[in-house]
Nucleic acid binder design. Sequence first.
DNA 1: GTCAGAGCTACGAAATCCGCAGGGTGTGAA
DNA 2: TTCACACCCTGCGGATTTCGTAGCTCTGAC
Lengths: 171, 171
Amino acid sequence: MHSGLVASRSADQRGSRESRNGSPQLDAVSLAIIEQLQEDGRRPYAAIGKAVGLSEAAVRQRVQKLLDQGMMQIVAVTDPLTVGFRRQAMVGITVEGDVEAVADALAAMSECEYVVMTAGSFDLMVEVVCEDDDHLLDVISKRIRAIPGVRSTESFVYLKLKKQTYMWGTR
Amino acid sequence: MHSGLVASRSADQRGSRESRNGSPQLDAVSLAIIEQLQEDGRRPYAAIGKAVGLSEAAVRQRVQKLLDQGMMQIVAVTDPLTVGFRRQAMVGITVEGDVEAVADALAAMSECEYVVMTAGSFDLMVEVVCEDDDHLLDVISKRIRAIPGVRSTESFVYLKLKKQTYMWGTR
DNA sequence: GTCAGAGCTACGAAATCCGCAGGGTGTGAA
DNA sequence: TTCACACCCTGCGGATTTCGTAGCTCTGAC
C-alpha cells in the first residue's frame, strides 16, 4: 500500500512554478510525463522515463507529486450510457448573486460529474449522470433549482456520446 | 471461498452480453472492476481481484478485454487550463440535415475533446480545447461553422473548472 | 562559507505483471 | 445423449516493475 499521507506542501521547486492565479505551472518534462500517461495510464515508469529522459525513480516521484497535488488523476473512463446510467444531460444554469457559491453547491452533488463556470448566456454548465428519467427529473427540478441563487436552468439530454478524448498535447 | 460467488454468477457466466442495440452490456463483476479503476487507475490487479472476488489473472484478462473493446480507457486527466491550454469552451450547435454526419466531422477535429448528440435547443454539444483566443476563434468561426449542415453555434467560454469526476457507481 | 530544501540517480528487495497450460461449464449440432 | 467448441477461470513460474532509501548536486537564504 502506498497510502502515505505525505503532507507535501506546494513549494516552489524546479519542476513547477507559481503563476498569477496561484495554480502551479508545469515544466516541459512533467508535461511530457502527462502526455505519456494520457496515452496509457498504466505505462511503466521506466518506459516513461526513457521517453522523457529521466530515470524510473524520478518519473515515479514526479507522478506521485502530481497526484498528491491533485493536478492529475489516473482513472478509468467509460461511456456512462454503457455502464448502466441511462440518462445523462448537460444543464446550463443562470445565476443571480454569487456564482461560485452555486458552483460549490453543485459540485457537492454526487450526480454532477462536471461543473464549470462559463461566460455566455449561461453562468454555469453542469454534466449530470443519472440512472433513469425519474432520477434526472428529481436532480434537475428539485435539487438543482432549489439551490439559492439559481435563476433558471436549461437541459440538454444526451442521446449519444460520439467522442471522448484526453490527449491534448499529443497533436 | 469462491463457491458462493461462482454459484450466484452461474446464470450469467459471460462477462458481457449483447443488448438490443448491439453494444455489449457489462456484468456486475466487470462493473466492480471499473469502479476500482475509477478510484485508482493503477491499482494492482491482485488488489482488484481481492475486492471483486476474482483471481489476479482473471482481472487482468477482463481489463485487457475492456480496453481492447474500447469500452474503457485508463488515462491521466488534468485540468487543461493548468496544462497550457488557455482557452476552453463548450459549443452548442444546431444542425439542419444529418446530425450524425456533422458529429463525425467534429469528432475528427483534434481540438474537439468531447462530442455528444443531445435533445433540446442544441443538436450537438462540443467541448473545444484551444491554446489561445486566436486558436479558439479560428476553430469556432472558420472550422466548425464551415461544416456542411451546421446552422448556428453558441459558445460558452470556460472561466473556471470546478469539478471533474469519474466515479459513478461509487456512491 | 554554511545550511537547508528540492530533485535526481543508483540499487537491492518486494511486489506485480505476464504468458501459458489445465480444467470446468455452458451451448449447439449430430 | 454425446461430442466439439468457445469461453472463462485458476495456478504457477519467470520477467518486469514498483518501492524505499541513501548519496549526490544545485540553488537560494543567511
